[in-house]
Design a protein around this nucleic acid. Structure first.
Lengths: 238, 238
DNA sequence: ACCTGAACACCGTTCAAGT
DNA sequence: ACCTGAACACCGTTCAAGT
């Protein structure tokens, strides 16, 4: 099948020697995860089916189950993969609060690139991806001098805030993708703002007021502003 | 069908006169939403299918589509219904920061009761449910004296934090429900903590330390501590 | 040990046909 | 106007059979 030629570049770079000596393009969890990420990025969450994945890997759909327990594990593995990359890139000896900002931003940008991660992160908690983020944040809070009794709560606020934003970005991307196939960011925000502006003035005064700033605002900046606000609150207890 | 007798109590209390004069137990969006909520509460998200819903309503599965566009709208309507109840209960003239705490807690408790709401809230944003929460928070921030330029960011942090926690609670409930059918809260938390304690000490020092406090901690208290932390951060800019 | 692909038990959604 | 329920086009998952 000519599909094979596409797959050559998918695996772990070149066809380095596998543990088994079978065909060099043998299936492996890594190749499956890589292919799944490609599908998720290009076709969206609904595009990832075992049939589509099998077709891309030029194999039978049942073969995937030899390497992966089920779709849940597959999705969790793709999320872990994306987040693990982010976290290794973020490792460094920056000043703690700066490091926290870097972690948050790294996750934000990763989700901007792979919106489906935002949904998955919340769906399967206590997996490697979340633990790495939590650990990264918690460690910096310790070095920041947050008293031990407050560290757990402080790390939790930051983590949950990040998860909340992640979920929203995933949802927005899903909506934008569905909308006439080619709605860009600005027109999407504009449409939301316009809808808010049309809301009942008595019932939604705040939303109407805010609708004016909405199209101008930058999600990434607002996300960072939120992190700063939370860090300011944490500074209060140390 | 004897199912009918069950359904009598499901609708809008007693069979008040309908707009149409047909059978008093005629289908309506409200009855469908109420039945869907019952299924979601008792069988979980995966239990809500159009076939199950139709069976409970003693009708054909196609009939539901006369009142509801598709499953997405059905889920959004159930979420709006649950959150709307919370928000009307919360309305009052409490001191602003106290009102914000009440809104947050109201949403938290609603999700504790209907875990699926936590997942749905993030899945379909910019719907009535989220707008009501956002408006409620934003309005109190104004009254709290937060400068106008900071109101949007401040309301967003709080909203996203709530959404993050909501998503986690939904996921935890889903896991607990799957686990041997009858894992209670404490043993679930204990299991998570035990797993954390077993993590590599070099890679996850923070998680290992925190694992000791984890079983003792109260999600609700921790949620409130997070709200307080964010409010403290917001107080910084006013 | 690993892969194949037909088969199974479901889904959401549609739609001709009824009342 | 509203409801019925068979039919359609999918799913994830299993498993006997192959190499």
């Amino acid at each position: 099948m000519e599909r094979r030629s596409i797959n050559v570049k998918i695996g772990s770079m070149t066809a380095k020697k596998q543990r088994t000596e079978r065909r060099s393009d043998a299936l492996s969890k890594e190749r499956i995860v890589a292919a799944a990420i490609e599908i998720l990025d290009t076709e969206g969450e609904s595009g990832l089916t075992f049939r589509a994945l099998a077709a891309r890997l030029a194999t039978g759909s049942g073969a995937i189950y030899w390497h992966v327990a089920d779709k849940n594990e597959l999705l969790a593995a793709t999320t872990d993969h994306v987040i693990a990359r982010v976290m290794t890139r973020v490792i460094g000896d920056a000043e703690p609060s700066e490091a926290i900002r870097a972690i948050a931003l790294g996750v934000f940008d990763a989700i901007d690139e792979h919106p489906w991660v935002g949904a998955q992160l919340s769906r399967e908690p206590w997996r490697t991806a979340m633990l790495q983020i939590f650990e990264g944040i918690g460690g910096r809070l310790q070095r920041l001098g947050v008293p031990e009794a407050a560290q757990f709560d402080a790390a939790s606020v930051l983590l949950n805030y990040i998860l909340g934003v992640a979920g929203q970005n995933a949802a927005n991307a899903r909506i934008a993708a569905g909308d006439a196939a080619r709605t860009d960011r600005m027109t999407f925000l504009g449409a939301v703002a316009a809808r808010w502006a049309r809301l009942d003035a008595a019932e939604y005064p705040f939303l109407r007021q805010v609708s004016a700033q909405f199209p101008k605002h930058d999600d990434r900046e607002q996300f960072l502003a939120g992190v700063a606000l939370i860090l300011a609150g944490i500074a209060t207890v140390r």
